[in-house]
Design a protein around this nucleic acid. Structure first.
Lengths: 246, 246
DNA sequence: CAGTGGTCTAGACCACCAT
DNA sequence: TGGTGGTCTAGACCACTGC
């Protein structure tokens, strides 16, 4: 009985809507519903968790704000997916000065290696644990604008290879989600201005020493577990990184 | 009677909680409650707007998410103020690599001038309308790390001068709020990597051509009216711009 | 037309704050 | 102790979707 339970709850306990939110996140992490799937209706969830519809609604509202689920009136509540067109550029803030957002992708390499200390620390794994390194470039109007490399713990991305990436048409995050069940929820980025190294300069077709925007990203999946470290170099001559401060 | 009104409302009308939210924003813009003031209680607002407490609560929840108001249990709902310690670094994302956030301020200049085309366009004013230009630097541990200049429409900042700025102890946004009644609500930033010009290099004590993070900010007050254009150059050798992607 | 989420109301009870 | 916001419930009605 929810009412009786409430009266007994110690004050350290989180509110019921927050507990329900966490239970739903756990179910998402466990794969009970996959990206794109519909969740049970509010009424069904209310029954399942022994709470009133209003309380479940509040939990779902929070999950909507975090972009974990999407609600469509008349249709249902769905698990967010990076395959959706709206999610296309959710994590890529580089925009052309004329507002264009499209890129073409070029894979430079994909190899298995052992995590160096900095990568292991960021990903919360042991040093020398196997990771997969992916390097690629993004082009806009035929010109390279982004050079990036990323490291992924092999235990979450077993079988990731150049062939798998090349065969896939959408974004990397859509691939990670459909092929490996790893859905990216949020990310933290650190930005700096750096000088292009000779190698980077050659690939990006700029002069060595040219200022580039360095973007280091740590991405998290359900339950705030870090699963990707990425380092990008953005050529910001006719593009800029857009941010919104609230 | 709210119920009767609802039934007649055309489908183009916003929901009641959104209308109430807008009415509260309008009252804030009109200065009915100043930053730091308490708003009337939920019950009082419900009476004033002829809605149920739950609907008013929803409007206040949205305003809380936008950081327009702050709610304190047992105490009341208060207008957000940049004087609050928590707001100190809300718009300044430059963090030392060791997490330090404090700066000391050095005013370089403050003068009245006519808006050039780019400034006027961003601020939504006529070209050659009077604006106030402020230039300053921020230091961390005695080293200059930020060089910035900003332009403010004079009609909103009448009387702003070097003396006024120097006499004030807190952040510029706290000054703008207390002295001119202009409260900054949100901002849009465009980031790029650029090479230090000789002038900027001399001020920031770096070599000419050194990569710097260029941050162009347009800040808005209540009702999404732009009231400040700012351009900063950040030296990101031992600092980085931190961002969170959701 | 049945089922879903979206809005709005009404009221109970709790936790917290100021006095 | 009185007033404030925080949580939770219950139910009515509307708007939208998809069959």
């Amino acid at each position: 009985m929810p009412c009786a339970a409430m009266r007994v709850m110690p004050k350290t306990a989180a509110p019921l809507y927050e507990q329900i939110r966490q239970l739903i996140v756990a179910a998402l992490a466990a794969g009970e519903w996959r990206p794109g799937d519909a969740l049970p209706s509010e009424a069904a969830l209310a029954q399942r968790f022994g709470a009133s519809p209003g309380t479940v609604r509040r939990a779902l509202d929070e999950l909507t704000a975090e972009h974990l689920v999407e609600r469509r009136q008349g249709s249902g509540t769905f698990v967010s997916t990076h395959s959706a067109p709206r999610q296309q550029f959710r994590f890529l803030r580089l925009v052309a000065d004329d507002e264009a957002r499209g890129f073409t992708r070029e894979l430079l390499g994909c190899r298995r290696m052992r995590a160096v200390a900095a990568v292991a620390r960021a990903l919360g794994i042991r040093t020398s644990e196997p990771v997969i390194e992916v390097r690629r470039m993004l082009h806009r109007r035929g010109r390279p604008v982004v050079l990036e490399e990323m490291w992924l713990p092999e235990r979450h991305f077993e079988g990731l290879s150049a062939e798998v990436i090349t065969a896939h048409a959408g974004t990397l995050y859509a691939l990670f989600e459909s092929r490996f069940g790893v859905h990216m929820v949020r990310a933290e980025e650190k930005l700096r201005a750096v000088a292009a190294t000779p190698d980077a300069a050659a690939l990006l077709q700029v002069a060595p020493g040219e200022p580039l925007l360095s973007v280091e990203r740590l991405a998290f999946t359900y339950g705030d577990r870090p699963v990707e470290l990425r380092r990008g170099l953005y050529y910001t001559n006719s593009d800029h990184y857009r941010n919104e401060l609230n």
